[in-house]
């Protein structure tokens, strides 16, 4: 399925944070979303993931309108996101977070919880450990509470949570920000691997240009709420306007 977002606009009081933003993403494609601070990148992601409700615009996902759905409804449709800052959730282990991520695609009212009560989680744990935690190098800390982990590993846990829901559209909000360069490269590789394995569409907001250039198939540049450029990574680096607004002159 492909994502077609068009005319997405959201205002906070008098500030137009995102202004008639449009973006298409094909399955199996990683689209980078870059731009200066305050450009509206995260706000745009928030509109797509149900955190904010835009004032106007549409985001079609295989014919379904995503705008106006709650985060939980979106997750059931296969739209998952990660967060810029990772919360430390006391008492929850890495595996617990992965299980929470896997749980959101099932609608559990009408007695579903009662069934959980009597069902063993062994098989689920084994499957999550093998398919989600192992590729992110989290197997050794699977039973550790997440607040004992480093920031970089907690970001990997957040990605694991999103992946456990088996997403078809993955929205990544600064996945490598704050990570060491080694962790950042591992994260970028994990994102590419996920795309290869699941064939999902990925939108990645990121500032680290080396990661963006090496990971993304296409790059969209935002400034002051609007898209000012879209193209292949090489074209973005060459564009004079993008250099002036964001990358800086060499």
């Amino acid at each position: 399925m492909a994502l077609t977002a068009s005319d997405v606009t959201i205002r906070f009081g008098g500030v137009v944070a995102v202004n008639r933003m449009a973006l298409d993403v094909l399955p199996g494609e990683i689209v980078g979303l870059i731009g200066p601070n305050g450009a509206g990148k995260t706000t745009f992601i928030n509109c797509l993931s149900g955190t904010y409700r835009p004032n106007a615009g549409s985001a079609l996902w295989g014919g379904d309108e995503l705008i106006g759905l709650s985060p939980s409804a979106l997750l059931r449709k296969g739209v998952a996101r990660t967060f810029q800052n990772v919360a430390s959730l006391h008492d929850l282990t890495v595996l617990d977070i992965a299980k929470l991520g896997a749980s959101v695609r099932r609608d559990r009212r009408f007695g579903g919880h009662l069934l959980d009560f009597f069902r063993s989680e062994r098989a689920l744990e084994a499957a999550l450990t093998e398919s989600i935690l192992a590729p992110l190098e989290l197997t050794d800390v699977a039973h550790k509470p997440i607040q004992t982990l480093s920031y970089g590993r907690r970001k990997a846990v957040d990605l694991a949570r999103a992946l456990a829901g088996d997403p078809q559209l993955l929205l990544l909000d600064e996945p490598v920000a704050g990570l060491t360069s080694h962790e950042g490269m591992a994260m970028a590789k994990a994102v590419r691997d996920v795309r290869d394995r699941l064939g999902c569409a990925v939108i990645m907001v990121e500032h680290k240009m080396d990661v963006v250039m090496s990971t993304c198939d296409r790059i969209a540049v935002m400034a002051a709420g609007s898209k000012i450029f879209e193209g292949l990574p090489a074209a973005v680096q060459a564009d004079a306007e993008v250099r002036r607004v964001y990358l800086g002159e060499p």
Binding site: F12, V15, A17, N37, G38, A39, G40, K41, T42, T43, N46, T51, F83, Q84, N85, V86, A87, S88, L89, H90, D173, E174
Partner: peptide
């Protein structure tokens, strides 16, 4: 509460 995750409006 834990640290909120939403990074404000950007």
């Amino acid at each position: 509460s834990g640290q909120p995750q939403e990074g404000g409006s950007r």
